[in-house]
Design a protein around this nucleic acid. Structure first.
Length: 469
RNA sequence: CGGGAAGUAGCGCAGCUUGGUUAGCGCGCCUGGUUUGGGACCAGGAGGCCGCGGGUUCGAAUCCCGCCUUCCCGACCA
């Protein structure tokens, strides 16, 4: 009856562990076409929680949701030179439809700057129409050569925001606002993943952008994951799509646009940032199921007690479910652990005889005995404690594996297991090539005080380098 | 897309080297019973175009060729 591990241990083979978690926690399956993903109900429930939290923050920032078509005329992509060059290798193109070859091929959207630009041009007439703040939740297609569930799939789900502003300053400020108040706030407060915020070096910029900001998180194996990005597009798309407005003075002027996105990749980030050898660990504020009430045995008195506890938790605003005592106890515990449910409340005859239950934390395995009446009043605070400790744990892990180094050679060494931070001045083309040959990449540029640079031309910048997903 | 490994029941695998009746095992699943405080046990049962296509052969899971898919390592990306 000794429990043997049901997952490949992280230390033995991290990628294998990841796949085991995705499969055993019933999050996703591979689709029939290479690179496609079937998101199962539990994985989708997590995504819906991510969506809800991000969507609320986007609306708080003033943007409105809309929907643009999946199909984009190929000619649109070509209007912005860097954009088409950046995306053409990964485009899926429809050449036949309605039983005939199409006169103009149709691209399946890899992102929607172009179509949205076209309509922004139509909708924006006056400075009074600015800023125009749009967002859409959609699927996009980028043909991937090496797919991985949630992290890199040929079709994925995301939100893409697109805005148009009268001035460069407004646009830059809004992109920054989204980056801090939507993405970084969500990542820290909900996903419990501390980030490095910075800008991408010129080579890594979004195709067509003048500046790209990123949120880089550290996974438990020390590798980096880009968890969200915001782009200043300058007037590149405004020029390509004629997005003009008439100013107060009656002059025609070009808009400045931004775009920003976060995707189902965040689910992969969640798995790798908090998971352990027992499976997923979901932060309480994110968890679709925060508490599982487990009946040790399937008998009337136990079940009645469970029902009462469940009802009291729900009325306290806790997302809770009931696991009736069918099947072996140990097996059920293991299943809930793999799914990463933050707290479980174990209810059995021995507990009930004493008027108590046993509450167990997923993150620390700590067991707490609570009086029956104390469960609903105390669980919300306990969930917040777990949330805070997950963030603290992730921050400790990140800090312990982030090192300031004086040279590229040492940066490559440090990047085998974590992040290295060094002067950006030390990294020329040949140094970057040397790092890249070891799979180490520049994740972002930051100021010495950790804030986000306005441009890569600022002096005394630092760069954070790491292996990345 | 390049280099490597692998596809046999839902999952994990054996069988292939040296072709030969009905293709096995563990877990899971179904039925019945006993169980239930950390992956329970007994008995019975269901489930396979052996990845796909072609070739060699009297005969192919097994040998040969092509393709597809998955995993690992690179280049590309959210």
């Amino acid at each position: 009856m000794a429990s043997q591990s049901v997952l490949t241990p992280q230390a033995e083979d991290f990628p294998r562990w990841y796949q085991d978690v995705v499969a055993k926690a019933e999050m996703a399956d591979n689709g029939p076409v290479r690179g496609t993903m079937v998101i199962r109900p539990y994985g989708y429930a997590i995504w819906e929680r991510i969506q809800a939290e991000i969507d609320a923050r986007i609306k708080q920032a003033g943007a409105q949701n809309a929907y643009f078509p999946l199909f984009i005329p190929q000619s649109y992509l070509s209007k912005e030179a860097e954009h088409v060059e950046g995306f053409s290798p990964e485009l899926a193109v429809v050449t036949h439809a309605g039983g005939e070859e199409l006169a103009e091929p149709i691209v399946v959207r890899p992102t929607s700057e172009t179509v949205i630009g076209e309509f922004m041009a139509k909708w924006i007439q006056s400075y009074r129409d600015l800023p125009l703040l749009l967002n859409q939740w959609a699927n996009v297609v980028r043909w991937e050569l090496r797919p991985r569930l949630f992290l890199r799939s040929s079709e994925f789900l995301w939100q893409e925001g697109h805005t148009a502003h009268a001035t460069y300053e407004d646009a830059a400020a809004y992109a920054m606002k989204i980056h801090l108040e939507v993405y970084n706030d969500f990542l820290n407060e909900v996903l419990a993943v501390p980030t490095f915020l910075g800008i991408k070096p010129p080579r890594e910029r979004f195709a067509g952008a003048i500046n790209t900001m990123t949120c880089e998180g550290m996974m438990r194996d020390g590798k980096a994951l880009q968890m969200a990005t915001s782009h200043e597009l300058g007037q590149n798309f405004a020029k390509a799509f004629d997005i003009y407005y008439q100013s107060e003075e009656g002059q025609a002027a070009l808009c400045h646009t931004t775009s920003w996105g976060s995707s189902t990749r965040l689910v992969g980030g969640l798995i790798m940032a908090h998971g352990d050898d027992r499976g997923l660990v979901v932060p309480p504020r994110l968890a679709p199921i925060q508490v599982v009430v487990i009946a040790v045995r399937d008998e009337p008195t136990v079940n009645e007690a469970c029902e009462r506890i469940l009802a009291s938790l729900k009325s306290a605003g806790v997302r809770a479910v009931l696991d009736r005592g069918r099947g072996s106890f140990g097996r059920r515990l293991t299943d809930w652990e793999i799914k990463g449910v933050p707290l479980r409340v174990e209810v059995g005859p021995r507990d009930l005889a004493e008027g108590v239950v046993t509450v167990v934390r997923r993150d620390s395995a700590e067991k707490i005995t609570l009086a029956l009446e104390a469960v609903a009043p105390q669980v919300p605070a306990l969930l917040e404690t777990v949330q805070a400790e997950l963030l603290r744990g992730a921050r400790d892990h990140r800090d312990a594996n982030t090192c300031d180094v004086p040279s590229v050679v040492e940066a490559i060494d440090v990047a085998q297991t974590g992040f290295a931070r060094l002067s950006w001045d030390l990294v020329g083309d040949s140094e970057e090539a040397e790092m890249n040959s070891q799979a180490v990449t520049i994740r972002c540029l930051v100021r010495a005080d950790g804030s986000i640079p306005a441009s890569d031309l600022e002096e005394d910048l630092l760069c954070i380098v790491a292996k990345a997903y």
